[in-house]
Design a binder for these strands. Structure first.
Lengths: 210, 210
DNA sequence: GCCATACTATGGTGATCACCATAGAAGGGC
DNA sequence: GCCCTTCTATGGTGATCACCATAGTATGGC
């Protein structure tokens, strides 16, 4: 097959060699971790490469567009896993908005405790450094929030919320989660998640709920 | 007066020369603005000095401890003005929790619109770069949140909330405000403030409120 | 065995980082 | 008029930044 393809000059590596190392995946995972802890600008490529253990010089082979490309792939990875978590919680609490909200706050709080309050949200960290980001990266961050919000709104609609109400409630919940992360990191305590969970849950309990 | 004071050797500049320039205040204001837009690490001293218009070389005369000291003074300034704003709103809406909350969201949203969604919260930006901050600066950021929260809690107590309820409601409100800022910057629209205001207000309206 | 591809390895690019040493100018106290 | 203090001005420090040029190794197709 290589012959047939080699003749076509357009695409030159279609046949994929068996993956030899996981240097690329390691770099993305390390970048995601460090960006979450330190932020985008404060994290140097030197540190990412060093901590990823992967060979140093080959970085621009895997990421020819450099740091920006690495961040793009890191955020894609992050958003995908965050959405997967939300979908799981949604499935576990189908039709029950209060249980859904409580479970989300509990899950996020647990994640922060597990990291000893070191990890922030990758999307939030990038959002706070917008001028350092190129257009493509900014778009992905914004899209990450939109997609996350949509998963939550979908669950609320499944609880009988009107589409408009579901959207605004989802938007409020996402914002509350982001804010809680900031506070929790400073307080090194998950109490703010508890406070916000109560506030958010009370909202959908009153008689006129629908 | 200068004679009498000059005799005391302990303090050597009590008598204050007439302030010749406002280079120092300019540097703090410029730092605050840039830190809010770009973040702490991403903002270089070079840029601060250049944009502040003040003379370049004299920076370490005014801020002998360098960037960290500048950030400390910037955040002190920021926290003080934020608390003043909250106190004003509190006084204008005494005894009315719902009005208080709505007015806060409206004020913060207006500030974001006025800056064309460029300004983040200085405390939040610093909180997201904790590893780059020294202990003193971290302490001031944390204290800024505690003090802001206390102003809000105080208002809630004045509305008849129990102390515990007032504290957790205030904590939730602060977190919601921070999260809303992040989202609003990306969406370049204040709608998330509106959504959160509705959610937060509904909480204190149901029959059992107290 | 040969070659193309996949990946590693080294060393260095100019630019920018925070920071500082040193010296000069401006102005009031005496 | 001299001095001390406040403030300005210049130029450069070593370190680190993202990025890249070049060469070497490993592996599978043929």
């Amino acid at each position: 097959m290589a012959i047939a393809i080699a003749a076509s000059s357009e695409v030159c590596y279609v046949w994929r060699m068996p993956r030899k190392t996981d240097a690329r995946a390691n770099a993305i995972a390390t970048a995601q971790r460090l960006f979450r802890i330190q932020g985008y600008t404060a994290t140097g490529l030197t540190q990412i490469i060093a901590e990823s253990g992967a060979p140093k010089g080959s970085f621009y082979f895997h990421f020819p567009r450099g740091k920006a490309q690495l961040a793009e792939e890191a955020i894609d990875h992050y958003v995908a896993s965050r959405i997967a978590v939300l979908r799981n919680i949604s499935a576990d609490t189908a039709g029950d908005a209060r249980k859904f909200i409580r479970q989300i706050f509990r899950t996020f709080a647990a994640e922060m405790v597990a990291s000893d309050f070191q990890y922030g949200c990758l999307m939030q960290n990038l959002a706070n450094e917008l001028p350092a980001l190129d257009a493509e990266l900014t778009k992905r961050v914004a899209r990450g929030f939109v997609d996350s919000t949509e998963v939550i709104a979908q669950h609320f609609r499944g609880c009988g919320f009107s589409p408009a109400h579901a959207s605004s409630a989802a938007s409020a919940l996402v914002a509350a989660l982001e804010g809680a992360r900031t506070i929790a990191r400073l307080e090194r305590a998950p109490s703010v998640f508890k406070a916000l969970a109560e506030v958010s849950v009370q909202r959908c309990s009153p008689p006129e709920q629908g």
